[in-house]
Simulated assay, not measured.
Amino acid sequence: MQMNDFKLECYFGKYEFTAPYLLTQSDCEAMSTGELLALEPEAQEEFMNQWLGYTETWGDPELRKLIAKLYQNMTDEDVLAFHGAQEAIFGYMNVMLGEGDHMIAMYPNYQSAYEVANSIPNCECSKWYIRDKGTHWEMDFDELEALIKPNTKLIAITSPNNPTGYTFTNDEIKRLCAICKKHDLYLFSDEVYKGLELEGEKRDWMADHYDKCASLGVMSKAYGLAGLRVGWLVSKDHETLEKVVKFKHYMSICNSAPSEFLAKVALKHGEKLLERNRQIIRENIKQVDKFFDRYPQIFEKKAITCGPVAYHKLLLDMPVKDFCQMAVEKKGVLLLPSEIYDMEDQYFRMGYGRKNVPESLAKFEEFLIEEKFV
């Protein structure tokens, strides 16, 4: 298998741990092990006595039950745990796609959602574009149906979307699942930001609406616990899960026992962690909106309804990649240009999930002033 470079990770490899002002991060604010253990009585003592042997390939039984409770109609038997979300995506796509298959991927999207298809001979991937409507993003379901071919096997979506922040409404979730059912297609639903709804409407998990849907979740994004490296797939399609677990035997085999213990603690207090991160995002939106309101000649801002990322437009007459390069070199402010998503348009990703967003935003404004963009 020949895989193309993961552009986002290559870019972050240069700057993520050297640039002091990370204004593009897609995860939420993390916490220490001590802070997490303090949420649960007796957890610290139990953690110190955690056995460090192998864990079950499908995941810790209690962890799988806690994950299943996030859904409406799932049990622990519908849950397969992974070492982060990336492993789950890679395993699922390798199992599902083969020579001669066609898939459709929401676009822009996390690269691994479609890159496995590009690595398989005669496997085709079509892009279902998220459309820029000025102040917001939109999806065209008629366009989706027009992309379906006789050999289409799979649709891959991310909602809330990274990088645009676009999020399907519950009515749109039902419509998407109905289209998949009508054409007998598999649905891979990346929902790693589920739980960060900001405008009141709590979204359903897509796997609760369609048996051939695999729903992806992780502790990294909405919960802000990326260091745990614990993710999962949930589906009523046990035949597919059985295939994916056999592929997992060639990857991590099983998760880290301390990580699964800490993930269980986090999920027992999941709503508290999610509300903490929603509040951080809400406060950062206020600050960022004021920033953009001061510079309408430079930026076209996009609204966020769910999740910690937005994909704003640069209105200057210069390539957005050069603008982002200047920001990180001159002021240490890291933004993610649309080039990383193989897009020629003038967009850049901004993250709202960290507590230091106001500080990073102030440095970004200094950059604009010192470089005479204003």
Rank of each mutant, 00 (worst) to 15 (best):
M1I: 05
M3F: 11
D5C: 02
C10E: 14
F12E: 14
G13V: 10
E16Y: 13
S26T: 07
G34L: 08
E35L: 06
L36A: 05
L37Y: 02
W51M: 08
G53L: 10
T55I: 09
E56Q: 15
D60H: 15
K69D: 11
Q72H: 07
T75F: 08
V79W: 04
V79P: 01
E99A: 01
E115S: 15
E115V: 09
A117L: 11
C125E: 14
S126L: 14
W128Y: 07
W128C: 04
M139W: 04
D140R: 09
D142W: 04
L144Y: 13
K149G: 11
K153E: 09
I155F: 07
A156S: 11
N161Q: 05
T169P: 02
R175W: 04
R175A: 11
C180H: 06
D184C: 08
F188R: 09
E201S: 07
K202N: 05
R203N: 01
A214C: 08
S220H: 05
L225I: 11
L228W: 14
L233N: 11
Y250M: 10
S259R: 14
A263N: 13
K272I: 14
R276S: 02
I285F: 00
Y295F: 10
Q297K: 05
V320D: 12
K321H: 07
A327I: 02
V328L: 04
L335W: 08
L336S: 03
E339C: 00
R349Q: 10
M350G: 09
N356G: 02
S360H: 08
K363R: 12
E366M: 08
E366R: 06
I369Q: 02
E370R: 00
